[in-house]
Every structure is written in C-alpha cells, then in structure tokens.
Amino acid sequence: MSWTEMALNGRILVVDDAMENVQILHAALQDEQEVLFALDGARALELARTQHPDLILVDAVMPDIDGYAVCQLLRAAPETRDIPVIFVTALKTPEDETRALEAGAADFITKPVNAAVVRARVRTQLTVKRQADALRALTLTDPLTGVANRRAFDERLEAEWRRCARAGLPVALILVDVDHFKAYNDHYGHQGGDACLVQVAAALRRGAGRTHDLVTRYGGEEFAILLPQLDTLGAEGVAHRLLEELAQLDLPHAASPTAPHITVSMGLCSMVPREGQGHEALFAAADALLYQAKAGGRNQYRMADDAASIAAR
C-alpha cells in the first residue's frame, strides 16, 4: 500500500454537539473519507465500539461527556484504545492543548477550521495508524500458516467475551487437533509436516467462512476457532464444514492408524457470558471435549450439550 493509499478511504467519526460544525467537517472530508457523526459523547463511544472508525475528530466542550472524557474512555477500552483522536475545538490556549494530549489525543486543531489543514492532519494520522496496524498484524500472525497466533486469540477472546456479555450473545469455540501429527512428521519429515499444517490452516479458514470468525494456530498442530455470536448448533454446522473441507483436502497420512489421510479431532461448545464469569470456562469445556474426541477414537468432534461424536465424512 502506497503512502497516498494509506491516507485515503478511512472511516472518520466526527463528534460535536453543534450540527453546523459536523457539516463543515463532513464537507472537508467527504471526498476522501467515509464520515460518520455523533452529537454527544455517549453516542460517540457506542459508534467507536460498533463501527470501528479509523480516526475520531472530537470537540473538547460538549454537555454530559466532554471531549477529554471521551478520549480517556476510548483509551481505557481495549477495543478502542488504538483509534487515534484529533481534538477540533474553539479552545486555543497551550493549557487546553496540553490537557488534550495528556488525555490521549494525537493532534489538536483550533476552530474555525481550515479545510486543507484538516484534510492534511487526517491524512497524516491515517497513514500513521495504518503503518501501526500493519506492524501489529505481523505480531499477531503465525508466520508458518498465515492464520492468527495465540496472542491474537487471547486478545480477541477477551474482547469478544466482554462484547457478547454486554449484548447477551453467545460465544462459541472449536479446538482442533491434527490426529497423529508426530507420526506424520516422522514419516514425511518436518518440511512435509509444515506443508501439511499450511494446508490444514487454509481448509479451516474456508470452513469458518464469516469475516469475524478467527482461526488461530494455538500451538504445534493445535488450532482454535473463535465463533462470536454462534450457539452450539451453529458451531456444529461449522464443525461439519471443517470436516468436509479436510475430507476434500485428502492429504495422505500413511502412518495414521485412524485413516489413510489427514484427520482431526475437535471439541466444541458455546456459552453466553455471565456477569463475573471468565472466558476460561469456555476454553476448559472445549478442551475437555477435545480430549473426549481423541480418547473416543479421533476423526470426530464432541459437543458440549450431548457429547455426541460424529465421524468425519
């Protein structure tokens, strides 16, 4: 991505209690960016959580929740703390700017605004954010398979658990273990084992097809698939697709006592987070079910509700 591309086509949230100010900023940015707006701090925080803007422009002086408090609350929440904030305000003193920067602002623009200056400052912050996002993505990606790594899984599980707890929605988890992978490595060599994991990860990504599902290489030949807003039956549907994708892959495994091709064992469950309940319970349940699937002969999954096993097709 070029520097110019990094600075364009962002999602910008404008927060100001005066509609005329919102309209001025919208007019300045609409040709280069997607512009959302909020007329108060509470609505701004809601849109920041649900719409994931790339950048927020906020007025300092607003009723109820002012810009300083909005910025501090954004910085305090894991799901919004990386969104840069520019103050756009009629306040002009060095003390006002210092207070904004101490609250976590990335920049400070005084009113009345100059459209060219606003566009330039927005482009700069978008470029910085996208560079930071790209670097962060490298730290959250498994270098072999290209899926998320364990750090990414831990962060995402924490965020989805909190979000679904607020909304009263379920979170589903599938733990996947490649059957007899040590025997595969011994027979085909470690390069063959690496190639196998790359293909298995790609099959899992195809099976978990929603954009907000997260496929993770949790460690070695173990994968974890996080499925926000899915109940147990929904997760079972994903498990069926995973088995179908792996069956179509038809990777030979001459050393497997289970089947002549690569198979997996899975444990899956879903929970609606309750107040005071940590996500450790979800992971522990899926892990216990995975153990049951392996102990029951592998090449199958076990579910939380009836612990039924279903052979891979």
Rank of each mutant, 00 (worst) to 15 (best):
A42H: 10
A134R: 13
D64I: 07
R123Y: 11
R123F: 11
T139F: 09
P78F: 08
L73P: 02
R151A: 02
G146R: 05
V70S: 00
V118S: 09
R151D: 01
V35E: 07
D64H: 10
A152H: 11
T141R: 11
E97G: 07
T93K: 08
L138V: 14
T98E: 14
R43C: 04
L140C: 08
T110I: 12
V118Q: 08
P84H: 05
H52F: 05
A44H: 04
R136P: 10
P143S: 09
D107T: 01
G104D: 00
F87H: 02
L140I: 09
V70T: 01
L140W: 02
V113Y: 08
L39T: 12
A60S: 10
R75P: 01
A116Y: 12
A115W: 11
I109Y: 02
I109Q: 07
Q72E: 14
F37P: 01
D154L: 09
Q33L: 06
A76M: 05
A103I: 06
A60Y: 00
P78D: 09
K129V: 01
R123T: 09
L73C: 05
A100M: 01
M62W: 00
T93R: 13
E34W: 01
R136D: 12
D66P: 05
P78S: 10
A120H: 13
V113C: 13
F153M: 08
N114E: 13
T139D: 11
T145F: 09
R119T: 14
A106E: 14
R43A: 15
I109W: 01
Q30V: 15
R75V: 04
G41H: 03
F37H: 15
A60I: 12
A116H: 14
T145H: 10
P78V: 09
L140T: 08
A77I: 02
R49K: 13
L101K: 12
A69H: 05
G41D: 03
R123W: 09
N114A: 12
L126G: 03
D142N: 12
I65E: 06
A48N: 01
Q72A: 10
A48M: 03
L140F: 07
R123E: 11
M62Y: 01
Q33D: 14
L47H: 02
L73Q: 14
R130N: 03
V61L: 15
D82N: 13
N149I: 07
T50H: 10
A106T: 09
A148N: 02
L126I: 06
T110L: 09
L47M: 12
T98A: 15
P53E: 01
C71V: 00
P53H: 03
K111Y: 06
V147S: 04
P94F: 04
V61K: 13
E32I: 01
F153W: 08
E46R: 11
A148S: 14
Q30C: 13
V61D: 11
T110W: 06
G146D: 05
L91S: 08
E97A: 15
A116L: 15
V35P: 00
A60E: 07
A120R: 14
V61I: 15
I83T: 03
P63H: 07
T110H: 04
T145S: 13
Y68G: 04
A134N: 10
D54G: 06
I109N: 00
Y68F: 15
T145W: 04
I109M: 09
